[in-house]
């Protein structure tokens, strides 16, 4: 101990241990802190202020009070439309992606030498899905002469419409692109399934429980924390869908794929209505916050934490989850 304190004095140039730790702490989080202040904190509050202003980058911002917000909700029909489209998009694509991920994870959850290869193939779309190339490709997959119609013809459904330029189906093409990227939640579910002790299933089968009962009584409750985490994160991402909509349809046909972020971009950077764009962004944040809170609040009803029954087991698991080999 004596050795240590003499050391402290030597290294710290006379500073006390606390002061030295403060200095070191801010040294280490320094790069993050500087960027956080400059590119998150300042823009965050600037955005709030701007949302009450009229600003087109040419003349100085003028304060307009609640005008932007009032205009959005009373005059801007496209705003309401884009909001509804985004809600439809999020609440169709994200649950379907998670459900599909769960189904495939359950199928893949068995011992086979091929499973690692399958995992890679299924994960590939998640890696590539955000790229411009895949969005461009998507446009031609669902074009009139595209691969999708060819596939339908092959299985005996004659189809000759352009899914991208039809106002009823265009949004579904983007939804499908999102479901297509089910690989990353699938891998996470697979990890979750592997952690469920086999003894639970053995006990259930001794008690005469069938596959369906086992699924709803064991698998689903034990996976619910993972499902919950994924639901929150993917939902937030879903609300911010932008590049796919811009590249595949650019909001068309008849603004039927004008998702919220795309409309915001067009207002802010197409018409240079910066204040209006900021007001839209704040509404988006409130909406995301609302649904996140809703999921959190409802989670106590449907998310089941294992340490509710066995404290020790749950702890062990979390420890394992934190470590990475």
């Amino acid at each position: 101990m004596g050795n240590r304190s003499s050391n402290t004095a030597g290294n710290g140039r006379g500073l006390s241990k606390n002061a030295r730790n403060n200095l070191l702490g801010y040294f280490f989080i320094g790069p993050w802190l500087i960027m956080f202040l400059a590119f998150t904190v300042v823009p965050f509050f600037a955005s709030l202020v701007l949302s009450f202003c009229d600003y087109n980058m040419l003349s100085a911002p003028t304060f307009v009070g609640w005008d932007n917000y009032v205009k959005l909700f009373t005059e801007d029909r496209l705003f309401t439309k884009s909001l509804l489209i985004t809600l439809k998009f999020v609440f169709i694509s994200i649950p379907l992606r998670l459900i599909f991920a769960l189904i495939v994870a359950m199928i893949l959850n068995r011992d086979s030498k091929m499973v690692p290869i399958y995992r890679v193939v299924y994960y590939l779309p998640s890696i590539l899905g955000g790229s411009v190339a895949v969005s461009v490709l998507w446009r031609y997959v669902f074009a009139k002469e595209g691969v999708f119609n060819q596939f339908l013809n092959l299985i005996g459904i004659p189809c000759n419409i352009s899914w991208i330029s039809n106002k009823d189906t265009a949004l579904w093409c983007i939804i499908l692109l999102f479901i297509w990227q089910f690989g990353s939640p699938m891998l996470i579910f697979l990890a979750g399934l592997k952690q469920i002790p086999k003894t639970y299933y053995e006990a259930a089968s001794i008690d005469g429980a069938g596959k369906v009962v086992t699924f709803f009584r064991i698998t689903l409750p034990l996976l619910s924390p993972i499902f919950f985490f994924n639901l929150v994160m993917q939902m937030i991402g879903g609300f911010m869908v932008f590049s796919q909509a811009m590249i595949i349809t650019d909001g068309g046909p008849l603004n039927n794929t004008m998702v919220y972020a795309l409309y915001l971009y067009k207002q802010a950077f197409g018409y240079y209505k910066m204040g209006y764009g900021c007001a839209m962004a704040w509404i988006l944040m409130i909406i995301i916050g609302f649904f996140t809170l809703l999921v959190f609040k409802s989670s106590s009803a449907w998310v089941f934490y294992e340490n509710q029954i066995s404290e020790g087991n749950g702890k062990k698991k979390r420890k394992r989850g934190g470590k990475k080999a």
């Binding site: 956080f36 400059a38 590119f39 998150t40 300042v42 823009p43 965050f44 600037a46 955005s47 701007l50 980058m57 937030i236 609300f239 911010m240 972020a261 915001l264 802010a268 950077f269 910066m274 764009g277 900021c278 839209m280 962004a281 704040w282 988006l284 944040m285 995301i288 916050g289 996140t292």
Partner: peptide, 16 residues
Amino acid sequence: TMMVPSQVLVVPQYLI
């Protein structure tokens, strides 16, 4: 910051 949508920050960031 993980919860803040990038859209909120994008306009002021652009101005900066």
